[in-house]
Amino acid sequence: MASLAAGPKHGYAITRDVDEMAGVKLGPGTLYGALARLEERGLIEAVASEDERRRPYRLTGVGADALRSQLNDQARVARIGLERLSGLAGTA
């Protein structure tokens, strides 16, 4: 979903973007399993395209809200974790 925050992308573009962004190589089964679940929940949607075999996906409004909320939670956990680690380094 974070990959689609930059704009609509088709399957291959998503795998390349996720590889560059997170260093994770998404397998085709994993990617389309995730796309199917996200589309089913209304978090992403397919965009009409001339090439029906390389249809791009984009975040829906609900999907953007869900992603924002998720990333905020992750950022909060990361911030607290880093603060605790720096406290641990001070006591060591």
Binding site: H10, Y32, A36
Partner: peptide
């Protein structure tokens, strides 16, 4: 729903 797109992805990515 997804077979054609998956085929296109596999053509692009050489699995």
């Amino acid at each position: 729903r997804y077979a054609e797109e998956l085929e296109a992805l596999l053509e692009d990515s050489r699995p």
